[in-house]
């Protein structure tokens, strides 16, 4: 039934720490790997080894450059984006078949691939771009909060968390009950000022984002200039050797730096 439950017993969700996320894509690849073979699978890519590989991903990592006021330099914030398991998900209410639903017991938003007709209206209703259509199966796919892991008693207790949370090497992803004020995730949100994405649309997302911490002002490190040449024959010999060796390696000599180049 696409009518929403009035309340949910739990509000399971994720808390994503934008301060510690390093943008390594481990959560995204781990998500794809788990969900390609679990309840959501196969999560088929088209042209997977070709130049135009494309397919549904439940978790995508944006990189944003943030320029703060009054600063010349900017910072990079890695921004994982997945289903926020909203309390008022219009993606569910617009569904004409009842394939999309929100679970009353834990608030997880799911799609039943057996009854989805692939009308894509739910993806239009989602402001967060969380739903991606599976062209090969003709149905909509989305993050399941790893419902087939978190209650899976065949797994070790420490593995009964979403695959993305398990994979994160910096501990930037936290999983828990955001409906319980005493839970670790709720405490974390309180302590760090966790926020909702696009709250003005009133979808009431369950997932929260922790803002990047304020930058610590470091003292200007003074780099000692290299000592000036004293003109000794030995030094002249080294300079000559240095020049000679650099000839075959022009890019090093010109000091060209490719590290900041934009991709995509």
């Amino acid at each position: 039934m696409t009518s929403l439950p009035l309340t949910t017993t739990k509000k399971l969700g994720l808390v994503i720490d934008l301060d510690t996320c390093v943008g390594c894509q481990a959560c995204a690849t781990s998500c794809k790997e788990w969900n390609a073979q679990g309840d959501s699978g196969p999560l088929t890519d088209t042209d997977p080894y070709g130049a135009d590989a494309s397919g549904p991903w439940f978790n995508r990592i944006h990189g944003y450059e943030v320029k703060e006021q009054g600063r010349d330099d900017s910072r990079i914030v890695n921004f994982p984006r997945s289903c926020l398991h909203c309390e008022e998900p219009a993606c569910v209410t617009v569904c004409p078949t009842g394939a999309s639903y929100k679970r009353a017991e834990d608030g997880i938003v799911l799609v039943n691939p057996e009854t989805c007709i692939g009308c894509k209206l739910c993806s239009w209703a989602c402001p967060y771009g969380a739903r991606e259509y599976d062209y090969t199966q003709g149905v909509m796919k989305k993050c399941t909060l790893c419902v087939d892991r978190i209650y899976n008693t065949n797994l070790e207790p420490e593995d009964q968390v979403p695959a993305c949370v398990k994979a994160c090497p910096t501990g930037a992803r936290h999983f828990g009950d955001l409906g319980d004020e005493s839970s670790a995730v709720s405490q974390l949100v309180k302590k760090r000022g966790g926020y909702d994405l696009l709250p003005e649309l009133e979808y009431k997302p369950t997932n929260k984002y922790l803002p990047p911490r304020a930058r610590r002002e470091t003292k200007q490190t003074h780099i000692e200039a290299l000592p000036k040449s004293n003109g000794s024959p030995m030094e002249k010999l080294f300079l000559w050797a240095d020049k000679l060796l650099n000839k075959g390696n022009a890019s090093v000599a010109s000091g060209e730096d490719n590290s900041g180049k934009l991709e995509g």
């Binding site: 944003y64 703060e68 006021q69 914030v77 934009l262 995509g264």
Partner: peptide, 10 residues
Amino acid sequence: GLGDGVRQWE
């Protein structure tokens, strides 16, 4: 939630 000076980088 990142403020006015944000732009897509990657």
